[in-house]
């Protein structure tokens, strides 16, 4: 068996990924991701800049956690496009609440 060695990429608020990487890693198309951006369910770090091309958008890498869950749910439950934005908002809210609960329990 061959031993491989590799470095890890952080999925957190500090590290960024490009639109191309998000498409590749999430399984969503650019059109679907732009729809999520348009309705405010997803935010890009540089979306407030003017005159940017969709391909130039950059995202915090932590968004991949909820986006991948969304992608699984979309595929496994055959979800419709309109439900995805709402679900992403709830997934992110649940993720943050779980972190908050974990923090409160540990700090007791």
């Amino acid at each position: 068996m061959q031993m491989e060695s590799t470095e890890l990429i952080w999925l957190d608020e500090q590290h960024e990924i490009s639109m191309t990487e998000l498409i590749e890693l999430s399984g969503f198309t650019q059109e679907e991701l732009l729809h999520l951006l348009e309705i405010g369910a997803l935010s890009a770090n540089n979306s407030t800049e003017t005159d940017f091309l969709p391909s130039e958008l950059r995202f915090s890498s932590h968004c991949l956690i909820s986006i991948r869950t969304l992608s699984r749910l979309k595929s496994d439950f055959e979800l419709e496009q309109n439900a995805l934005g709402l679900m992403l908002v709830f997934l992110e809210r649940i993720r943050l609440l779980e972190l908050q609960v974990q923090g409160l329990e540990s700090a007791k």
Binding site: M1, Q2, M3, E4, S5, T6, E7, L8, I9, W10, L11, D12, L25, S61, H62, L64, I65, L99, Q102
Partner: peptide, 23 residues
């Protein structure tokens, strides 16, 4: 079977998720 050595750097948090591209 795969065996991968991955370096988890200092500063990782509990529940942290990381990505190993292409693995």
């Amino acid at each position: 079977p795969h065996n991968i050595k991955a370096r988890i750097p200092m500063g990782v948090t509990n529940g942290q998720k990381m990505l190993l591209r292409g693995k």
